[in-house]
Amino acid sequence: MALGEPAFGSATPAGIMRLLSHYRIDVSGKRAVIVGCSPILGKPMALMLSNANATVTLCHTKTVNLEAEVRRAELIVGAVGKPGFIPGEWISDGAIVIDAGYHVGGIGDIDSGGLLDRCAAVTPVPGGVGPMTISTLISQTVTAAERAAGSA
């Protein structure tokens, strides 16, 4: 994936990219901020967005002045694993908001209160990124089986 070669990407970031593609959201040239740097979500998400020509900043819970980084984002991916960690007021008007977190009570990593009225796109929690992860896993499984059977 880092070399831009065809590969099965991590399911959640690959699902997010499919979601963006489906809604014809072009990330090329956009300033993307990912909050969360896990090896299965944050880091692959950064690679996928970078491969799609976004300008990517990878942040985490220890990022100095995280608020300023989030405010600059045209696309924000919350993938830190802490409920409500990113306050909605940090997010700029017109931003694309992808919340990859899910916590007890249907709470995401981003406090989404008021975002629907001022952002270009916002994924719901639950029902946004999770189903895309499952769909991507199924698609990758079918493709792998077809390849193994020699029909793809």
Rank of each mutant, 00 (worst) to 15 (best):
M1Q: 10
A7M: 05
F8G: 00
F8C: 07
T12A: 14
G15D: 14
I16P: 04
M17S: 02
R18Q: 02
L20K: 02
R24V: 15
I25C: 08
I25A: 12
G29W: 11
G29M: 11
K30V: 08
R31H: 15
V33A: 08
V33S: 13
V35Q: 04
G36M: 05
G36I: 08
S38I: 08
I40Q: 04
I40H: 03
A46H: 01
L58R: 01
C59A: 14
H60W: 05
H60Y: 15
H60C: 10
T61H: 05
K62Y: 15
V64L: 15
E69D: 03
V70G: 15
V70T: 10
R71A: 06
V77M: 12
G78P: 00
A79M: 05
A79W: 02
A79L: 04
P83H: 11
P83M: 07
G84C: 09
F85H: 03
F85D: 00
W90D: 05
W90G: 12
W90Y: 11
S92G: 09
D93Q: 05
G94R: 01
A95I: 07
D99G: 01
V104F: 15
I107V: 10
I107P: 08
D109V: 10
G114C: 04
L115Q: 12
V122E: 09
V122K: 09
T123W: 06
G127R: 02
G128Y: 11
G128L: 13
M132P: 00
M132H: 12
I134P: 10
Q140Y: 14
T141G: 09
V142S: 00
A144G: 10
A145I: 04
E146A: 01
A148I: 03
A149T: 06
G150N: 09
